[in-house]
Design a protein around this nucleic acid. Structure first.
Lengths: 250, 250
DNA sequence: CGTCTTTTTGACCATTTTCAATCAGTGTGG
DNA sequence: CCACACTGATTGAAAATGGTCAAAAAGACG
């Protein structure tokens, strides 16, 4: 994990996220503010821990590229992954707003983060209400994703669960160009899936095979190929992502 | 479900939540703004549906008294309760910020709500950044609760799950005086518990009996008595509520 | 090539669900 | 007051789902 060389005042006009139609455009004023609000950049490699449960991080991050996941652990080591973090997603908002961090975040694929200072957050609220609203939007969106995850784990069986999760990851990843062909370019292992689905690795593996038998997905070379998104949606009784283009980010 | 008689400009100075040390105090300015921001009140009886999944509610609510729960359903009828709603909690923020409502809300015990207009929300952000921040705080808190619920369902077994959920409900209810003695004064059924825990009613019932055998809780007269909170926390490997006094609300 | 991680498989075990009743409490109308 | 209908709580037995243990196979990597 290291701070980028050209730390301060990286030009947000050239933000890599700005090129994706998935995200909203900033006004000139917002762009200028954000350029100043941004403290620097941070990169981290696979396996690095960006945030530790229980810590009081002084920062807030937006993912510029790469991926990570948010998780919690019980004292005896059982782990539950709550959500995955893709470009445009924000990391550490919970902690910035409420104090102590209640979850950890680990890097999945080499990640580049935009860094903001937690103690300047109030200033954003005071001077740029549209961005403040966007932050609430981002929090509400995370809430919504968690609702769906809860429904998934609580009420779907193993096969449906895996179908939902893979379809969800696939569509979210696709929106930020983390899909190559029918292949998810996020280096997820079956253990990650298992810890997200609330299943054991063994059963997750068997479930994936059943999905493969139905020609819905295929696990190959450490990665997941999606052969039939519609089939996955149908199996999981899911409507797909509600989001259109133009969603907020910071 | 009906609108209160003295709809407009109910004096927020006398807000019933203001008497609970659990919540933060408003400044005179905030209080005046909120009194105007508030559109009216709404009361609803047990079983009423306040919000329907898929709708575009024009309102946002804060619970003044009573209780409710938030849930989602699969097409085939399986239901998952995501969270319970107590006094001081906000209802409909997700929909207000993101558009369509992605979950339903049903009344548990006769409820009194403070009503706000969704289309005036931006005005709040523009003029009262402290309240805007509070809204983000509330969203982040919901996110945090959902994280814990996800860990609960995903990684704890039935006994631990029930222990966590009951302890959690008990402590949250206690903070807003919805506990009488050791008894939760929220008319929850074992089906509600089951749909929250991701278990069947039958197994939930058996699990509750096991908790009773251990003298941790007791189910009596349609309600739950908690005999040993510490024991529940220990069993669930949970630290209890992180919240201190002085939390925000609208 | 040897080591490490990840995936895959088999056999067996535990947990949880489903189905089917029964029981208890509540409220209703006669 | 009692018969009746209803909802919610309990229980038993059988079946299904998912977990654990152990080991092998397949890649990944230096």
């Amino acid at each position: 994990m290291s701070m980028g060389a050209s730390s301060h005042h990286v030009r947000c006009v050239n933000c890599p996220l700005g090129h994706l139609s998935h995200f909203r455009r900033f006004s000139a004023d917002e762009l200028e503010f954000l350029t100043n609000f941004k403290t620097g950049e941070l990169t981290a490699d696979t396996g690095a821990t960006i945030i530790v449960e229980g810590s009081h991080s002084a920062h807030l991050y937006t993912v510029l590229s790469g991926s990570a996941y948010r998780y919690k652990m019980l004292e005896d080591g059982r782990r539950q992954i709550m959500n995955f973090v893709f470009p445009g997603d924000i990391i550490g908002l919970q902690g910035s707003v409420m104090g102590e961090m209640q979850h950890s975040v680990e890097v999945l694929s080499p990640i580049r983060l935009c860094v903001f200072e937690r103690n300047r957050l109030m200033h954003l609220y005071e001077t740029h209400s549209s961005l403040a609203f966007d932050l609430t939007w981002l929090a509400a969106r995370e809430e919504q994703i968690l609702d769906e995850n809860l429904l998934n784990i609580g009420r779907r069986n193993a096969l449906e669960r895996a179908a939902y999760l893979i379809a969800n990851l696939f569509l979210r990843a696709k929106a930020v160009e983390l899909v190559k062909g029918n292949r998810l370019s996020v280096p997820i292992t079956q253990l990650h899936l298992a810890d997200t689905l609330g299943l054991s690795v063994v059963h997750t593996n068997r479930t994936l095979k059943r999905l493969a038998d139905r020609k819905l997905v295929r696990w190959r070379d450490r990665g997941c190929e999606v052969h039939d998104v519609e089939g996955l949606l149908l199996l999981a009784q899911w409507d797909g992502l509600p989001e259109g283009p133009g969603r907020p980010y910071l």
